[in-house]
Simulated assay, not measured.
Amino acid sequence: MKIDTGRKTVGANRTTPSSATDIQQALAQAAAGVSLRSVTKKYGSVTAVENITLDIPAGKYCCLLGPSGCGKTTVLRMIAGHEDISSGDVLIGDKRVNDLPAAKRNTSMMFQSYALFPHKTIWENIEFGLKMQNVPDAERRVRVGEILEMIGLTHTADRKPTQLSGGQQQRIALARALVTRPQVLMLDEPLSALDENLRVRMRTELRKIQKQFGLTFIQVTHHVEEAFSLSDMVVVMTHGRLDQVATPDQLYDRPGSQFVAKFMGDNNIFSGKVKNAVSDGELDVVQLEVEGFGVLYCRGYSSPVGTEAACSVRPDLLLVEAYNPDVPVTSTLSGNQIVARITAVEMTGYVTRVSLMAEATGQELLYKVRTNDWNRNSLSEGQLVVLSWSKDDCVFLPH
């Protein structure tokens, strides 16, 4: 097959491309880790990022996660060289890059809008970065052809971006970023412009490509599900600071703060004061005095007695049964119990969401259960129930 790039014919006449394995090895060897050392960014009197120290190992997929305005995009832009830092150091590999312009950092950025040139063909879009690097013409032809073949879009070489679907445009933007063989690829909310179905498909594609090439990916997102499905490590930010750095599993099972537990969504959070703590294995068993509920038992690294804190339990870890006024309801070391009333039942497909209100305090709570399991019980809206959960499933939140 021949591809007309608009300037010369390539395909049967071009240089034989390297194998897919060769391309993957070249990209993997280029991958580098990123380190931030006490990095701060100020805009006049406003501190956007404050004293961040972070290590992202080479070849990992890292998501910077947090609400709008938390500083995650500023961190990405400082790594890329699109923002100057106010203090601290940025290292790519073992090289300090504070004073290097973006073009000299050997990184690539994939923007939210893709930033494809509408007047250029797909081939010319992908080739652009190589031209800026003064890569010889023959090598450009080989590398552009290789990357188009690898993403399965060779047939689009002569088209303009507006002639492609949103998913195809994203793959072209990714190809343009990869063809320069960067040490680090940065992605600024690359999926936010896509509809839900395409977003799910494309995040699968992103993860597949990252694993295939072994590159270091750093992505900004405010979608928890997106961060969980894509990343090896998640960096949760709030108010310009790091709140928790963890794997998706760790973040899901053990949120490290009240902010993280709330941002993850759906966690049932109870606020109170530390009454006592007992060392028991790796994590303490903490007694938390919660107004209206008495003592709730949870696990974590304890704070001093009298400290304000909280605990959380995921809605899928609750047990629900009909309330019997003749059976005492109380929390003990073996587990927590409270009385609540079912206020709404929402079948969302595989999972049914049950909204409840605690009788003692009026606090809104959530229970999640497989729809088939929910349909087997006799519980209904308006009914009083007992919620119970293990201390081992209840996470202590120190701040």
Rank of each mutant, 00 (worst) to 15 (best):
T9N: 15
G11R: 09
A12D: 15
N13T: 09
P17T: 01
S18M: 14
S18K: 03
Q24K: 11
Q24F: 07
Q25D: 14
A26Q: 07
A26C: 10
A26P: 04
L27D: 02
A30M: 00
A31F: 00
A32F: 06
S35G: 13
L36K: 05
K41N: 10
K41I: 14
Y43T: 11
V46P: 11
A48H: 04
V49D: 08
V49P: 04
I52W: 09
T53R: 02
T53P: 09
D55F: 00
I56S: 02
C63A: 06
L65E: 02
L65R: 04
G71A: 01
L76V: 07
R77H: 07
G81Y: 04
H82Y: 14
D84N: 14
I92D: 00
R96V: 15
L100R: 13
K104M: 11
K104A: 14
N106C: 09
F111D: 00
H119P: 14
T121H: 03
G129S: 05
K131H: 14
M132Y: 01
V135C: 10
V135S: 01
A138P: 04
G145N: 04
E146C: 05
I151Y: 03
T154C: 06
H155F: 12
R159K: 08
L164E: 00
S165W: 03
G167W: 00
Q168D: 02
Q170W: 03
R171H: 07
I172W: 06
L174W: 08
A177H: 00
L178R: 03
T180A: 13
R181C: 02
Q183M: 12
L185M: 09
A193N: 15
E196S: 11
R199K: 13
R201G: 07
R201K: 13
T204A: 15
Q210A: 03
Q212T: 06
Q212A: 12
Q212S: 15
G214K: 04
H222A: 10
H222W: 13
F228H: 14
F228M: 14
V234D: 02
T238L: 06
T238Y: 08
H239M: 15
V245P: 05
A246H: 10
A246L: 09
P248W: 10
Q250K: 13
D253Q: 14
R254P: 11
R254F: 09
S257K: 12
A261T: 15
M264K: 06
N267L: 15
I269Y: 07
G272C: 08
K273A: 02
V274M: 04
D284N: 09
E289Y: 08
S302F: 01
V305P: 11
V305Y: 04
G306E: 15
G306W: 07
A310V: 05
P315K: 06
D316F: 02
V327S: 10
P328V: 10
S331H: 05
L333P: 06
I338V: 14
V339G: 08
V354L: 02
M357S: 12
A360D: 07
Q363P: 10
L365M: 11
L365I: 08
R376Y: 08
N377L: 10
L387P: 03
S388G: 07
S388P: 10
S390T: 09
K391N: 12
C394Q: 05
V395W: 07
H399S: 14
